[in-house]
Design a protein around this nucleic acid. Sequence first.
DNA 1: CCCCGGCTTGGGAGCGCTCCCAATACACTG
DNA 2: CAGTGTATTGGGAGCGCTCCCAAGCCGGGG
Lengths: 343, 343
Amino acid sequence: MAAARVRNGGRPTLEEVAARAGVGRGTASRVINGSPRVSEATREAVQAAVAELGYVPNRAARALAGNRTDAIALVVPEPETRFFAEPYFSAIVRGVGAALADTEMQLLLTLAGNDRERRRLAQYLTAHRVDGVLLVAVHADDPLPELLEQLGMPCVISGARHANEPLASVDSDNFDGARAAVEHLITRGRRSVATITGRLEVYGAQRRLDGYRAALAAAGLPPDERLIAPADFTEEGGARAMRELLARRPHLDAVFAASDVMAAGARQVLREADRRIPDDVALIGFDDSVVARHMHPALTSVRQPIEEMGRRMAQLLLEEIAGRTGERPTVVLPTELVVRDSS
Amino acid sequence: MAAARVRNGGRPTLEEVAARAGVGRGTASRVINGSPRVSEATREAVQAAVAELGYVPNRAARALAGNRTDAIALVVPEPETRFFAEPYFSAIVRGVGAALADTEMQLLLTLAGNDRERRRLAQYLTAHRVDGVLLVAVHADDPLPELLEQLGMPCVISGARHANEPLASVDSDNFDGARAAVEHLITRGRRSVATITGRLEVYGAQRRLDGYRAALAAAGLPPDERLIAPADFTEEGGARAMRELLARRPHLDAVFAASDVMAAGARQVLREADRRIPDDVALIGFDDSVVARHMHPALTSVRQPIEEMGRRMAQLLLEEIAGRTGERPTVVLPTELVVRDSS
DNA sequence: CCCCGGCTTGGGAGCGCTCCCAATACACTG
DNA sequence: CAGTGTATTGGGAGCGCTCCCAAGCCGGGG
């Protein structure tokens, strides 16, 4: 007797479990999938057999027969280093992982870099390789969300792309975070509050700017466009914007930067210009990253609940997969102002 | 005619591709899997059909029939926040992703947190859900590597657990990184060089300490155990160790900390003790993290090629999956000393 | 002209599971 | 006591693919 090629890693199959429990394959399947239409005695017999044999369902067979995969993909646009930068990525992953921990769902990580990979990606998702997709850091002009929409693939994105986001999305309250930061500056007596914005095509950056304006308006301070300098979320961009601001409004006494990294660039310029922080100029960032804590002086910053965002994204996706309800909620999570030495 | 339930998301199957190309299913399969035993004409016909139909193989069916999954798992011990801290996690993921980009391999992310999840994990891997496993930040007493070994599951770990690591592993040169850092301090005239170590059960931390000792010995400086303070890779631990060192050897003129985070803790204590950096005490960290760049003064640090480590890990794993050669290489990648203001 | 071997090819068998229909068993109802 | 309904069960029919055996084809040698 030649040893048969061992398939499935020598693992027991459902058939064997059924045989051991003295029931049919269908019944064993019902027990394992928690169907209520099984008698108590039968259920126990099958569960005993499962335990004795150490049975674990074969995922591939399940996927093939059941036309689902029990897996979701987290799609990360790789060149987007901003996203990969701490702490966003790991925090999101953690949150997603936490939400999935009690599930059979697996998490597939997909780095969609260049166009070629992006095409492959579309194919993957198209080929029903996953039950749903989490998209993070999508650009407004990314065709992927629409593609997924057409294919009826459940999908949740982080950060609405514009005011009427058709997809389910989870976002932090960019508007209120910025508003609170600027309000804090005004409360502390600052009167000439500038802002360094992110790329305004990014809806979140726009919202932060809106929040800045709202805070000024609420305090009765006149709007001054020359106190607004656009940048691009980079340290260099932040430095450049700060130089512009100093040139245009030498007597500004506070700066709200739409990211910690841009605040770091601004701080560098302020130091070179011999402006003391916070004595001469107060500085606030956004993200509450490691950079903020270790900056000198420590940077006041708006904290986003990133891990919680990941968790909510996963939850929304699971619901959409389960129910396919028509509704696509937009969840907005509150931010928190972490006051440190720079303001 | 009732519309049949659409399976497989309405995607074309291999059978349809074969029909369209006017060949048999087997032949179509051969073309798609790159078998050489197909005539040129046939190959082209099948490829044309694939293109026209937009055929993408069904992964589940493949896995079921072929007894493989085309997926590997990256197992992350979740409570290990040190690993999750920037920049390790995202850099590893990036490297792994890069290595997998040209492959059909999928990356499964598995956060193994508490014991319950760890059991589930063992089951997963046991049930042949993946073709191989990447283990990062494994503790010396983690049973998982041995378990995988027994099951014949290809596996690569980051960071050898001890000198004779039986598994394939990828590591940075902890010894030489530390040696170079301390050598640098000595070259700059420091004579009383202390070190703050990581948890010495961690092999890498031990190697850094070995490197420190080797550099002192090479320079002919006498070993002084009271210049060595153990810590645990945390900021608080670093601070505590620094206090001890200052108490024991008030006149030390340099500190090599086995991580940037511990260096940050040490800096805090040095500042409180009115020691100027680098004038009174030079400080060097390890990891070259964001913290290092934004510390004040900017921290000299040993950079590990983390992304490259991820890439090599994935490569090793792919080789092991493909070949199952008996050899289990230990790859050690060079580090680089990044000199900044603190030394 | 037949046979043999190499190159291609078609398609059966089967991977382990879910879905679903039909069968069985039993409890009531009228 | 037949008739009807309900709870439970078994197992056939696939899911889409890979593996592999056998068949078809061709050219060259005997």
